[in-house]
Amino acid sequence: MTCDVQITFDCADPAALAAFWAEALGYRLQDPPAGFELWERALEAMGVPPERRGDASAVIDPEGVRPRLFFQRVPEGKQVKNRVHLDVRAAPGLRGDERMAALEAEAERLVAHGATRLRRHEPAEPLEPGHLVMADPEGNEFCLD
């Protein structure tokens, strides 16, 4: 049996969070269904009331390999630390100063798009090559690894 995986984010602003993660991961917004040029028209045809049309958004990997990310509006805000988080592999195969410099450069790029830098974990070889803990615009933690 083959299973696909979708990662779902509960959030306050699906469009904004989808745009952030598309930028962070090199994804793109999912196209509207066939026959529709714009999501607004597709949602109207589906009978979705105007006040509910911003309740969800999704981004996809342009290569079709990595999982789809789905963002859904929920009424409550984030309460505690994530139990599951994404590791953004920004420096695979790199070690030491070269690795940390690559992670710092990626952190700077993502901060410009709304992320927050939380903390830096220095390399402690051989098992911990070092990483940065970040938060997306709604406070969901993720690591630059």
Rank of each mutant, 00 (worst) to 15 (best):
E98L: 10
A18L: 07
V80I: 09
F9T: 05
A16L: 06
M100R: 07
S57R: 12
A56C: 13
D55W: 03
A18F: 02
P14L: 07
Y27G: 15
P14F: 05
A19I: 05
L86D: 04
R28G: 10
A18V: 08
L17K: 04
C11H: 04
E76M: 05
E40A: 15
N82Q: 14
D4Q: 13
A22P: 04
E63K: 09
A12H: 08
L103A: 12
D87V: 06
F20N: 14
R73H: 14
P62E: 11
V65I: 15
A15T: 09
Y27S: 14
M100K: 06
R68Q: 14
A24H: 00
V48G: 07
E44C: 01
I60R: 04
D87E: 14
V80W: 09
R73W: 08
D97G: 13
D87R: 04
I60V: 15
H85T: 05
A34W: 01
R68Y: 01
L103M: 10
A22G: 15
L38S: 08
L17F: 05
F71Q: 10
L43W: 00
L25R: 04
D31G: 11
F70N: 13
L103V: 12
R83L: 15
R68T: 15
W39T: 00
R28H: 13
G96T: 06
A45D: 12
L29F: 11
C3P: 04
R95C: 03
P92A: 06
V88Y: 06
P75K: 02
N82Y: 00
C11P: 07
A58T: 12
E76N: 06
W21F: 13
T8M: 12
S57W: 04
R41L: 08
A102R: 13
P49G: 07
H85C: 06
D13W: 00
A15R: 05
A58G: 14
P75Y: 00
